[in-house]
């Protein structure tokens, strides 16, 4: 099969604790996959496994192509002397030794990527002075300029206003379709991704349920995953995962509402 990524029974231990157990899924070229789960479920850990930064305790990971990565949040000071176009340019060859001479082709490729993510307006601004949503767009351009086969994004939608969330999801969906890049995006709220996801990998209690949104986001499937009874409510076109009892296993944040009493 022409799959890009295969995880086979992956288990991860951190500090003597089992963080993930028996996680298996595949990603095909051009596929859009959501890695969904509450905070602390192990989403970042799983992305680090795929990046080769986190060794697995059990199972195996097979990657069949180059990977681009957008980290959760930049820790960069506002006065750092690095412009948006410099950051995108570093995506092309930032890991290589030696000096590179500026070229027209290179400049045009950077401009092309800036336009693709809608960041050309602030191309000459300092990266540290931008808002979170603007930085996400720049980092997506940085990751995609080297044309990876698979793009990993760690919670790019967290702490963004609604307009920025919509903008980034549509940029990603468009780029994935246009360039055939597979996307694996983590989020604790699945709702903005439901219209564009081909596959959902739902992690909770150290395990993962995999399938289409309709297959996975079901009370029986998620109850088994969480190890307690949960309901799935569909309200005003939004999906809410609700725990019957307040045990702490299902987090009570805006997206995973816990019923009172």
């Amino acid at each position: 099969m022409a799959e890009l990524l295969r995880l086979d029974g992956v288990g991860v231990r951190l500090g003597g604790r089992e963080i993930l157990r028996d996680v298996s899924f595949t990603i095909a070229p051009g596929e859009f996959t959501g890695l969904i789960g509450p905070n602390g479920a192990g989403k970042t850990t799983l992305l680090r496994v795929i990046l080769g930064l986190q060794p697995v305790a059990t199972g195996a990971m097979l990657l069949n192509g180059s990977v681009g990565y957008v980290p959760q949040k930049l820790a960069i000071e506002p006065d750092t002397p690095l412009r948006v176009r410099d950051v995108v340019g570093l995506g092309l060859d930032g890991h290589k030794l030696g000096i590179r001479l500026p070229s027209r082709a290179r400049r045009e490729r950077v401009n092309e990527m800036l336009t693709a993510v809608g960041a050309q307006r602030y191309a000459n601004a300092r990266i540290g002075e931008l808002s979170g949503g603007e930085q996400q767009r720049v980092m997506i351009a940085h990751a995609l300029i080297a044309r990876p086969r698979l793009l990993l994004l760690d919670e790019p939608l967290a702490n963004l206003d609604i307009a920025s969330v919509g903008g980034i999801v549509s940029v990603l969906a468009r780029l994935a379709r246009a360039e055939g890049t597979a996307v694996l995006i983590s989020a604790h709220d699945m709702n903005p991704l439901v219209p564009v996801m081909d596959t959902i990998v739902y992690v909770a209690s150290g395990r993962a349920a995999v399938g289409s949104t309709d297959q996975v986001v079901q009370p029986e499937v998620l109850s088994r995953l969480y190890g307690q009874h949960v309901d799935v409510l569909r309200v005003h076109g939004r999906i809410l995962v609700v725990a019957a009892e307040e045990t702490g296993a299902v987090p009570a944040d805006a997206e995973h509402v816990t019923a009172a009493g």
């Binding site: 990565y69 690095l82 890991h95 940085h142």
Partner: peptide, 10 residues
Amino acid sequence: ALPEVAEARG
């Protein structure tokens, strides 16, 4: 500037 991204690229 971007230590996490750098790590991911080796």
